[in-house]
């Protein structure tokens, strides 16, 4: 099995690589379209600011490639947000895979949200063996609004989409690579898709 982590300059890639290693998978880091297209499954990470991350995707020509991928793709954190239609952060046009918008938490709560929160109404094989109300680790200031593609929701300020799925595309707002055993289980489920 060939697992690729898209390496476009935005994100804590090392942690994802290590989390996969703990599952016995040696992932390859790549920013090359041809190589990414041939992978069995693809992880699309992202940490930082949306518009600069999108710029880096474009510089690598990946903004047009990612939406055409046929294999299972898992966007993590900012990766997931970039797969949505648009983000309020830096007024960023997204990849348009998930039909929802990314907006900032209100001033009623501390921003960023940092820490462990629960996931509810979990759906589908990505969450096999993961209990309802499981804790996942999140660090973010912007969130995806609830939509029909939501496969898990979390509440902070308001309920929002903490996981999304459309066909072969998956996205999680939380960091499975940092979410202890439950996060590891989710990554294992993804690799089996």
């Amino acid at each position: 099995m060939k697992t690729i982590i898209i390496n476009y300059g935005a994100g804590n890639i090392q942690s994802i690589k290590f989390a996969l290693q703990r599952l016995g998978v040696e992932a390859i880091l790549s920013n090359k379209a041809a190589e990414i297209k041939c992978a069995d499954n693809i992880i699309f990470p992202g940490v930082g600011e949306a518009s600069s991350a999108m710029r880096m995707l474009k510089e690598n020509g990946l903004d047009t490639i990612i939406p055409t991928l046929q294999q299972p793709v898992l966007g993590i954190c900012l990766g997931m947000q970039l797969m949505c239609n648009a983000s309020e952060e830096g007024n960023t046009q997204g990849l348009g895979i998930f039909d929802t918008e990314v907006v900032r938490f209100s001033q009623h709560v501390k921003v960023p949200q940092i820490g462990w929160n629960t996931i509810k109404n979990v759906k589908g094989t990505l969450f096999d063996g993961i209990r309802e109300n499981e804790y996942m680790y999140l660090v973010h200031s912007f969130y995806a609004k609830k939509c029909s593609e939501m496969i898990a929701e979390t509440e902070y300020d308001i309920p929002y989409a903490s996981a999304l799925q459309k066909n072969n595309f998956y996205g999680v707002q939380f960091h499975p690579e940092k979410s202890s055993k439950a996060g590891s289980k989710l990554l294992e489920n993804f690799l089996k898709l």
């Binding site: 090392q14 942690s15 660090v139 055993k181």
Partner: peptide, 28 residues
Amino acid sequence: AQVDIPFTVGGGIASIADVDRLLQAGAD
């Protein structure tokens, strides 16, 4: 490589290069 929860590193960090190295190595 071995711990699956987030961690912070501090102590004597004073530059962008310091931070870059630590984040690249896997600090959250």
